[in-house]
Write a protein that binds this DNA or RNA. Structure first.
Lengths: 211, 211
DNA sequence: GTCTATACGAGGATAGAC
DNA sequence: GTCTATCCTCGTATAGAC
């Protein structure tokens, strides 16, 4: 194998797999497992369909690989947050902010997670990977409740509702944009920042105890 | 045409269309426009594929018809609520409760709306139909803010976030069920009621002004 | 208004050369 | 490890009989 080829990634196994995964991520984000077309993926990679089946066995295998990489990424974001600040509110703000940033800057993954939920009913990821995102949030809410800083509430429902608030704007941005004045780009830096501020305040207000 | 045939709905145009729409609703809820298969729809109706194309021209036409019916239904729910109660909080509680009941008891429509957002980017419904659901909520929030009963906030973002909270639980129920103790059925009457209570309290707390 | 048969293209997957 | 050619099923859509 020539060095030039390796540099260009043309005959480098890992580089090729990565390129396929990137292209697949885009395509699965468009239509989910069912809607994605393998030729579309192949087309975007610059390689051929055969490479997909060679490296990932079949469409399902590719999907699983995409999903695993996506979950790992999201997991890293959640686990990078310090959840033991003295005030649970501060940790919650940090966690939600990080989640919103990640959701907003990786729209493909956000769409894929939503598809996985409604289309495949979570079949393709383990309970562990889902829990790794929710459990820190749930634990944080529990701590706030027992500290008397948060309302009495069911932390599971609250956590799910919080995640829902974080992702819904981004899942439906093309859909709801007409609510704003014409031409408003919901994914612009300014709008994303505004959404973050609004969502955080709404989430905090929703769980905080005002006594 | 014999009366018996008409009674059984076998040669009744409207009855047949309705049966197709019902079956299509189920199928589109499974995989969206892209993922739905016309044979699956035909199979569920008891009629044949040809009937679908006869009555609705093509798959897209059928999808549009399903969506229109769905939007009309949701619109009726929203418009049935009295949004001018003296206390905006009371109207908001009523609106959210009605929305949650409708979302939870028509899961197919809920999934279809989500698909329409992420898969088709709202292409298949008019701006008007979307607005008809959001605008009453937005107006209600505006009233609450100007009355000094709700926090200072952007009513558009808040409305989107509220809808997100209402639908996310139901969109991802199969996905998140492992967060609860094994065997918990998130769609049971009890869990739906609990989710409604929790969501309403979280939503109200999220917008209310505690001065 | 409904059914059967079928055209035809799309899409997932494989074989085998290089 | 990569490419070309190909197979074959599935799925949309139509034609035409009843």
């Amino acid at each position: 194998m020539g060095v030039e080829e390796k540099k260009a990634g043309l005959r480098d196994k890992e580089a090729t797999k990565c390129r396929i995964l990137d292209a697949a991520e885009e395509e699965f984000a468009r239509g989910g497992l069912m809607g994605a077309r393998t030729d579309a993926i192949a087309c975007k990679t610059g390689t051929t369909k055969s490479m997909i089946f060679y490296h990932f066995r079949d469409k399902e295998g590719l999907y699983q690989a995409v999903l695993e990489r996506a979950v790992a990424r999201r997991m890293r974001v959640v686990q990078s947050i310090d959840l033991h600040a003295p005030e649970p509110e501060d940790s919650l703000r940090a966690l939600v902010a990080a989640l919103l940033d990640d959701v907003g800057s990786h729209l493909n993954l956000t769409a894929i997670f939503m598809y996985e939920a409604i289309q495949n009913k979570g079949k393709y990821y383990s309970e562990i990977s889902l829990a790794s995102v929710y459990v820190p949030l749930i634990d944080l809410l529990k701590r706030g409740i027992s500290d008397g800083k948060f309302r009495e509430m069911d932390p599971l429902h609250a956590a799910v509702n919080i995640v829902g608030m974080c992702v819904f704007y981004y899942c439906s941005h093309e859909n709801i944009k007409h609510l704003w004045s014409p031409g408003t780009e919901l994914l612009s830096k300014e709008m994303r920042e505004q959404h973050k501020r609004e969502a955080i305040e709404q989430i905090i207000a929703g769980v905080k105890k005002f006594s």
